[in-house]
Write a protein that binds this DNA or RNA. Structure first.
Lengths: 90, 90, 90, 90
DNA sequence: ACTCCAATACTTTAGC
DNA sequence: GCTAAAGTATTGGAGT
């Protein structure tokens, strides 16, 4: 295998392989840090909104609904109502 | 309430309140898009690594371990060892 | 500390303490086994229902809804609709 | 439609279908009650242990470890150690 | 298409 | 009471 060879199996643990592994891990760690920073930002927006009197749970529901495909949502709604009907919940 | 008033309670649904709500939702949606982009990047790194012969599960374990170690280890370790000792797990 | 003393701190690791610790762990493990068995049963019911043509997601929603307090549910619904209204989703 | 037919599609909502749906929901609800009862028991054991001076967090860790060990350890361990070796974590 | 597992979101509990 | 942490449940993606 030309290009690479992994840190695996019976292969000698070459310095190159080590560096490649290290590089992978560090790339992921950097990306996860960025991801965490954004998660924190999202949390902050919700917290701030709550401070301004908004209902966080409802906000989350809105965000979730807007993400869904309108068709799928309608279809799910129909089934749900059928079941609720059958159970006397409507 | 001085500054604004939310879309809530018995308050008239002012255009201002609507705009504020819309703004909150859109900020969150923008952040979630960024977050998703990064999640995809992370996924890509794993997929590419797998293509180069790495064991993805092990990579994930490494990442997790490096994240957890600095935080807790030393603290819990002591009590834990006492208990493990008592249970013959050591 | 009347009755016993735990496996902790500077106390000598008495045989009694060991046995008590072991007993606690085993009680929990037994309970967790039972709990897992029930979780599996629930999973089975859903799987079987799916095989009979039911929509599992909708079934889960029904179960969740029936668990909720009707008043709270109604209230949450109201807020949600206010927000949806303000965002032109209704 | 020999055996049953679910509360679904264009089918007339027969009493039978309703009963079957109701039966499914109630079976799940009963199982979830049992499950909750056991969860509560587990909680009680931890609470009682805490009252006797045990460190709950450590107890949970022990339980978790004893659960995981037999399953995976040996398998993942090998690859993992190779990687950790390469990263200077060992 | 279906099963399985990892990741996310939600809920509840403990601690300040 | 609120923030932080755990546990639990649901969702989404990967593999077969």
């Amino acid at each position: 295998m030309a290009t690479t060879a992994a840190v695996r199996d019976d292969e000698p643990a070459t310095k190159f392989a080590k560096d490649q592994l290290k590089s992978i891990i560090e790339r992921i760690e950097r990306l996860e840090e960025e991801k965490k920073a954004i998660s924190d930002d999202i949390r902050d927006v919700y917290a701030e909104s709550k401070g301004n009197g908004y209902d966080v749970k409802a906000l989350r529901t809105i965000v979730r609904m807007r993400k869904q495909d309108p068709n799928e949502r309608a279809e799910a709604e129909t089934i749900l109502e059928t079941y609720m009907q059958a159970l006397g919940m409507l």
